[in-house]
């Protein structure tokens, strides 16, 4: 099996570091960016097989914008993006608008923080294989 390239964009350095370590253990090639600018640069320099993206970075919905920007390029239509967020539970209160449309984007799946490692891995595998029923 070829090694897959994963790019994680999340401003929580501890989380990205540990996720990187876990994913490396599972034979993924992982790159990390802790802000959107670096993330975009890394994304453009080397397109990953799967992008893991945090919605809320630096108290802004930057990840949300990033997902829309990336998906607006037709070349990225098939790129799987795993959106991780701690806000899924809080939806329906006052930030519902912020999410509007994000999971309607093609090949975008949301995962609620905190998540079990097994769940993360199985989602990733399904998305890369393109078998996720969504």
């Amino acid at each position: 099996m070829e090694t897959r390239d994963i790019l994680i964009i999340d401003d929580d350095k501890d989380l990205t570091r540990s996720m990187q370590a876990i994913l490396k253990e599972h034979d993924y090639n992982v790159d990390v960016a802790n802000d959107t600018e670096t993330g975009m640069a890394k994304f453009n320099a080397r397109k990953p097989d799967l992008l893991i993206l945090d919605v809320m970075m630096a108290s802004e919905l930057e990840g949300h914008k990033l997902a829309h920007t990336i998906k607006s390029d037709p070349n990225n239509k098939d790129l799987p993006i795993l959106v991780i967020t701690g806000m899924m539970d809080t939806m329906g209160v006052n930030i519902r608008d912020a999410f509007e449309g994000i999971d309607d984007l093609p090949n975008v799946v949301m995962l609620d923080k905190p998540f079990e490692t097994e769940e993360l891995l199985s989602r990733m595998e399904q998305m890369i294989a393109g078998t996720l029923e969504e």
Binding site: D12, D14, L15, R17, S18, M19, A21, I22, E25, H26, I84, G86, M87, D89, T90, V93, N94, K113, P114, F115, E116, T117
Partner: peptide, 27 residues
């Protein structure tokens, strides 16, 4: 209640990092 939602959101972020770090050792 909205306050609780906001705080728990932050707590969840920290918990995600803790759990993930522990999982590194477990793996």
């Amino acid at each position: 209640n909205e306050y609780v939602l906001r705080i728990t959101h932050d707590i969840k972020g920290h918990l995600a990092a803790i759990q993930s770090s522990l999982d590194v050792l477990h793996s």
